[in-house]
Amino acid sequence: MSNTNTAAIERNKRHMGLKASARISNTIIYVLLIVMSIIWIIPFICIVLQSFRMESTGRVGYVIPQVWGIGNYKALFSTNFPRWYLNTFIIALVVAVAQTIIVLCMSYTLSRFRFKLRKGLMQFMLILGMFPGILAMIILYRVLDDLHLSGQYGHAVPGLILVYVASSGMGYYVSKGFFDTIPKSLDEAARVDGANRAQVLWKIILPLSKPIVIYTILTAFMGPWGDFVFARYVSQLKPLGMNVAVGLQSWLATDTMTHNNYTLFCAGGVVVALPVAILFMCLQRYYVEGVTGGAVKG
């Protein structure tokens, strides 16, 4: 009797100990998570607060503005910023559509068809991807220049769209991984019922592929907002051809410029980030699916 009792007490003790240790480890985790969240969020809070600072334009050693106002946002309209915004927006829209079509064509084909050069093609693109993309840019911008499609001629938009879209077929991995997970028996059943391959794609596969289509559109749309290198090459630093990334960076190029434009940059950053971030947050689910699926399947 006493023996079982002590055993029960012992068990109870261990149980309590476990609980206590779990509580301690959970508390540590909460503290860590809170610290992390602060570190992760602070820059964004700073950028928003600074964009409302009216008393000076440069960098200061404090975060909360002394004089609040929306003057910086108003001032954006007297700069080239609306033009950059429009440029980027048009590019992003067109790229979102065109790139999605190309990527889906590519990935669907490589997932579903078994043709002679398929393996070779995939290996070739893998090797091609090992060359730094900037290398191709050096010549492409001169070709675009010859075609009068560069910033030299005041409009880098068509040239940039061409550059983004044309080689986007190489980014087929994630959506190919998705198509691979759709059972082939679906295709075969439809083929038996007399559908040709194009109909299989339109009527069977695409309706099942909503998540990956949205993922592709989302990443294609977000790419141009953050692209710096290609946009800088093609715009050749001529203000009318820039996108937001190149434009806003040009405001902070030197210390004096930073002194004059810092709060303006913050306001511009907020205006750029807000719609993109909201869109992203709304479609987050699809992004997470794509990213996790893509990483697992390579």
């Binding site: 710096f228 990334a245 960076q249 993109v276 992203f280 947050m281 992004y287």
Partner: peptide
Amino acid sequence: IAIPQFIS
């Protein structure tokens, strides 16, 4: 991830 990288 949501905010364009160049801004951050």
